[in-house]
Design a protein around this nucleic acid. Structure first.
Lengths: 331, 331
DNA sequence: TTGTATGCGTTATCAT
DNA sequence: ATGATAACGCATACAA
């Protein structure tokens, strides 16, 4: 007599079906087995409501069918939407996803990596900020938005092109004098290239521009001050603003409203990221849209693909411009 | 000679330190061990960069230190913020989180539950829609926003009180005739109580109200039509609207703008959920705020606590009202 | 083709 | 207090 409440194991199935352990294993794994045995085993499985223990499986195989995602948080729409697409791409390939939020904490990032290190996960996708993050060779890693060198592929949108596109659009839309606003320049990551792209675009279109780059510790208040300084006789001395994120764009738009400056009539604003209101409503502003879904898919593909001999260190996916009401429509 | 590239195991540590397996295990688990042995083992661990294999641990212990979250998606801010807080609450208790997005698909929900069934996870937190979801007794389950009966606790905000609060606020703010707009009444879940609470509030304050309840397949267009119908001589026949979610509220506010009806001057609008722009900016509208963080914490506490003899089936956490600019300020 | 036996990395129960 | 050894549930090489 067995304990009736215990979780059924393969052994239980074997004795229930009157066959041996190996036979059950073969049935479960779809290996060739005599038809008569197969049905007997399947019946026993159903009867006992048996499910394989994937931890025991993982122990044996050295693979767990689980990958981990390192991401700062999930309240920022960019991160949560990215996480969503990565999760679904993983699901489609029958992988489970372990979620690790790091809150931009370098120490915690490292802690996670070491925790996941050995054979707990089959791979890691990480959007991290720790410049010295030590990733063991033994575990496949794909980085988002940050080049980590040493054979770790990095997936990002084409940030340089995005910056350039913003400048070009502003020029096309009739701007003559524009501003560039950004924060967080201290991190050496791909989004930094938006600045260079923007400058490049301004130069090629002969657009005059001014830049305000906030340090890590400075608050958005500096943007208020900057804009106020540039308001002369009730008019802003810019007719276009490129903000390095939609978040800054939204903030700036609010400030402008308080200053009685109309958007887009007096000044046109372009952001970056392509965040939508409530996930699937309108864009928050005219913006450079990151192909989030494609980026997610690529991360998963790179992580799960057989390591090909030589592959690029950096994958830049194309961005696009959309009008979200804070620029004039292109006619 | 061992393969030098293999992941070190406890056995490797043992032979490296010149002690037995059991001793290493004790050191790793903090059990009393002679000081001299302890240091030797710790040295070996450092030298080999050894980490315990939690899958092997889980196999033995029957516990995995992992819980799963079933949630429709992560692009909806309410879900992603909830997920964020659950993840952090779990982290704080040293649990890992498996993320399972279900896209409101009843079949997929069931598939996940059966997949996670045996000993893959120590518990499940689920925001599900499958009315017949079969949850095995063997695995602890906490439900969000939906009562599942049979000893499964349900965590929700006080939806009834929220509806009532909305009505009372509208009354306090001077409304005389209000409307209630909602969708998705087919799911039997806690948020449905918002309606009853609102009606109750209207009655007690002698507020006249009208309701529009959309079926599952009807689109938001119906709201447009409803509002248009109630615009007479350029004036809306309501001076207050309660929308069952912030999402609907935002939609309605956009419609009203197009109809040249001012918010909050002509009509005041209250939503539900407490979504913030970009996660931490302003509220999207005046709204009844769900205590998302507290709900997340409670889910985790309930899931991980020792099963106490008798506990409530339903936990209602208090909601609060905030002005998000679509109502007049209370003075 | 089916059954048997061993090992995966860890913990726990024994002797020592 | 420490060391040997038997499980845990599954996969697989090998023997029948």
């Amino acid at each position: 007599m067995k304990k009736s409440n215990a979780i059924p194991t393969m052994k239980d199935v074997a004795s229930e079906a009157g066959v041996s352990l190996g036979t059950v294993s073969k049935v479960v794994n779809g290996l060739p087995v005599g038809e008569i045995y197969k049905t007997k085993v399947e019946e026993a499985i159903r009867k006992l409501n048996y499910h394989v223990n994937s931890y025991a499986q993982g122990l044996k195989a050295g693979k767990t069918g689980t990958i981990a995602l390192l991401i700062p948080n999930l309240w920022d729409p960019f991160f949560s939407v990215l996480t969503h697409h990565i999760n679904r791409a993983l699901q489609a390939r029958q992988y489970r996803m372990l979620l690790c939020t790091t809150d931009f904490n370098a120490a915690q990032e490292q802690e996670y990596v070491t925790m996941l290190q050995n054979n707990k996960v089959d791979g890691i996708i990480g959007l991290t900020c720790n410049p010295a993050l030590a990733v063991p060779e033994s575990i496949p890693f794909v980085s988002i938005d940050r080049s980590m060198g040493s054979g770790i592929p990095c997936v990002a949108c084409d940030n340089f092109m995005g910056g350039q596109l913003a400048a070009e659009k502003l020029a096309d839309l009739g701007c003559r004098r524009v501003a560039f606003l950004r924060t967080g320049s201290s991190l050496a990551n791909e989004p930094n290239k938006r600045k260079a792209g923007f400058e490049n675009g301004c130069l090629s279109r002969k657009l005059k521009y001014e830049m305000l780059i906030l340090g890590d510790e400075e608050s958005y208040d500096k943007f208020d001050a900057f804009l106020t300084e540039h308001k002369i006789d009730g008019k802003l001395s810019f007719d276009g603003i490129f903000c390095v994120t939609d978040k800054i764009a939204r903030y700036v738009i609010n400030v402008l409203k308080k200053m009685n400056i109309r958007v887009p009539e007096d000044v046109q604003v372009i952001g970056f990221d392509g965040i939508r209101q409530l996930g699937d409503f309108d864009y928050l502003c005219s913006t450079i849209v990151q192909p989030v879904q494609e980026m997610a898919q690529l991360c998963v593909d790179l992580l799960l693909q057989e390591a090909s001999p030589a592959r690029p260190q950096l994958y830049c996916l194309p961005v696009s411009y959309v009008c979200g009401g804070t620029t004039r429509e292109i006619t």
